[in-house]
């Protein structure tokens, strides 16, 4: 499933998180079940909308948690 090819505004489900990643993302209200919206992709990673907040996630990490 090539989620990151799509042009923004794609709802995705976070998967494959280890324990530390889960805890860190929980701080930003992101869990395995959260459906988040990508608002921007750039060389550094992805920026997602979580509620009213914009959370930027490192490219390498985004690669490991966003792709099935």
């Amino acid at each position: 499933m090539n989620l990151l090819n799509a042009n923004g505004n794609v709802e995705i489900v976070l998967i494959k998180l280890n324990k530390q990643e889960k805890t860190q993302l929980a701080n930003y209200y992101l869990t395995e079940k959260t459906r988040i919206k990508i608002i921007k992709k750039c060389l550094s990673g992805v920026i997602v909308q979580v509620g009213v907040n914009q959370v930027a996630i490192d490219k390498e990490w985004a690669g490991s948690i966003l792709v099935k």
């Binding site: 990643e21 860190q24 993302l25 930003y28 990673g45 920026i47 907040n53 914009q54 959370v55 930027a56 996630i57 490192d58 390498e60 990490w61």
Partner: peptide
Amino acid sequence: KSFYVISF
């Protein structure tokens, strides 16, 4: 390698 997450 540490990962980077930041709330804007």
